[in-house]
Amino acid sequence: MTILKVDIKQGGYEAGKSLIHNIAFSISSGSILGMIGSNGAGKSTTIKGMLGLLPFMEGETDIAEGLTYSYIPERQIYYDELTLWEHIDFVGSVEKIPNNIYKKRGEELLKKYRLFDHAHQFPSTFSKGMQQKGMIVLALLTEPQLLIIDEPFIGLDPNATKLMLRSLEEERRRGAGILMCTHVLDTAQRICDEFVVIDQGTMLASGPLEKVLKECGAEGGSLYDCIPDEEREGSE
C-alpha cells in the first residue's frame, strides 16, 4: 500500500531561488526507500519540502489519511533543559500515548540502545553517537507508520550500526515505510527496496536498483557509480 506520494515541482528558502525541482517518488508500507546523492545535492532540502518545512515550494505531498510519522534530522535536536527521559515524557504527552505504554516502550528502547543508565542525564553531555541513539529511541517510541531518517548511521559505532539495521528491519516487518537518506551506499544497496538519486537539486533516477543503475548509465555497477563525479562536473 502506498502511504506517501511526493511531487515537488520546485522549492527553496525564497521565491525565485529554487534549490530543488522535478522530484517525484512514492513510499509503500513495509518498504525502505534510499535517497542518495553527494553533499549539497538537495536531499535534506527535499525532505524539508515533503514535510512542509520549506518557506517556498510548488508541488504536493500526498500522505495517507491518519498516517503517523517520525523524523530524525541530520543534526540531533534536543531541549537543553530536559533529560533524555523527560524527552520521552514529552513525546508521550504530545502524541497522547497512554502512560503505561510509552513508559514501557521507552524503557525497552533505552535498554536496547544501551542508554538506560543515562536516562536521567542531559543529552548535551552525551557523545555524538549517544545523541543519535537517543534520537532513534524518541523516533521509535511512537511506532510510526512512516520513518524518515536523514543520515541514520552518523556517529554510530559498528555495534550501534548493526542495532540500527536490526531496528530498520523490525520496523519494515511491522509494516512501516522508511525513507533513509544516507551516504553509506553499500549498506543502502543491501537493505533498500528502491532508490531516489538526486544531484544538483534534480532527480536523476528512481526505482529498484536495476532500473536506477540503468537510468544512471551504470548497469553492472553499484550505487557509487550513480553519483556524478565532482571533478568531471567541474571540468565541463
Results as ranks from 00 to 15, higher is better:
Ile3Phe: 09
Ile3Met: 14
Val6Cys: 08
Ile8His: 03
Tyr13His: 04
Glu14Arg: 14
Glu14Lys: 15
Ala15Gln: 13
Gly16Thr: 02
Ser18Tyr: 00
Ser18Asn: 09
Leu19Asp: 02
His21Cys: 06
Ile23Trp: 05
Ser26Lys: 14
Ser26Ala: 14
Ser26Leu: 09
Ile27Glu: 11
Ser28Asn: 15
Gly30Gln: 08
Leu33Glu: 05
Leu33Arg: 07
Asn39Glu: 04
Gly40Gln: 08
Gly40Glu: 07
Thr46Ala: 04
Leu51Gly: 04
Gly52Asn: 12
Leu54Gln: 11
Pro55Met: 10
Phe56Asp: 11
Phe56Thr: 13
Thr61Asp: 03
Asp62Phe: 12
Ile63Lys: 15
Gly66Ile: 12
Tyr69Arg: 13
Ile72Asp: 06
Ile72Arg: 04
Pro73Phe: 08
Pro73Asn: 08
Glu74Gly: 13
Arg75Ile: 15
Arg75Phe: 13
Arg75Pro: 03
Tyr78Pro: 00
Thr83Val: 04
Thr83Gly: 02
Leu84Phe: 06
Leu84Cys: 01
His87Cys: 05
His87Asn: 06
Ile88Tyr: 04
Phe90Tyr: 13
Gly92His: 02
Lys96Thr: 08
Ile97Asn: 01
Asn99Gln: 13
Asn100His: 14
Ile101Val: 14
Gly106Arg: 05
Leu115Asn: 03
Leu115Tyr: 02
Phe116Ile: 12
Phe116Ser: 09
His118Ala: 08
His120Pro: 00
Gln121Lys: 13
Ser124Met: 11
Thr125Pro: 02
Gly129Trp: 01
Gly129Lys: 01
Gln131Ala: 00
Lys133Leu: 00
Val137Thr: 07
Leu140Trp: 01
Pro144Met: 01
Leu146Glu: 05
Leu146Ser: 06
Leu146Ile: 09
Ile149Met: 15
Asp150Pro: 03
Phe153Gln: 00
Leu156Asn: 01
Asp157Lys: 02
Asn159His: 09
Ala160Glu: 07
Thr161Glu: 10
Leu163Gly: 13
Met164Leu: 14
Met164Ser: 07
Glu170Arg: 13
Glu170Met: 13
Arg174Lys: 15
Gly175Asn: 10
Met180Lys: 00
Met180Tyr: 02
Cys181Thr: 12
Thr182Trp: 01
His183Trp: 04
Asp186His: 14
Thr187Ile: 15
Ala188Phe: 05
Arg190Trp: 05
Ile191Gly: 09
Phe195Tyr: 14
Gln200Asn: 12
Gly201Asp: 06
Thr202Phe: 04
Met203Asp: 05
Leu204Ala: 06
Ser206Asp: 12
Ser206Gln: 14
Gly207Tyr: 11
Gly207His: 10
Pro208Arg: 09
Leu209Glu: 07
Glu210Gly: 00
Lys211Arg: 14
Cys216Met: 11
Gly217Ala: 07
Gly217Asn: 09
Ala218Thr: 09
Glu219Pro: 08
Gly220Met: 12
Gly221Asn: 11
Tyr224Ser: 14
Asp225Arg: 08
Ile227Glu: 06
Pro228Thr: 11
Glu231Asn: 11
Glu233Ser: 06
Glu233Thr: 09
Ser235Arg: 14
Ser235Pro: 00
Glu236Ile: 14
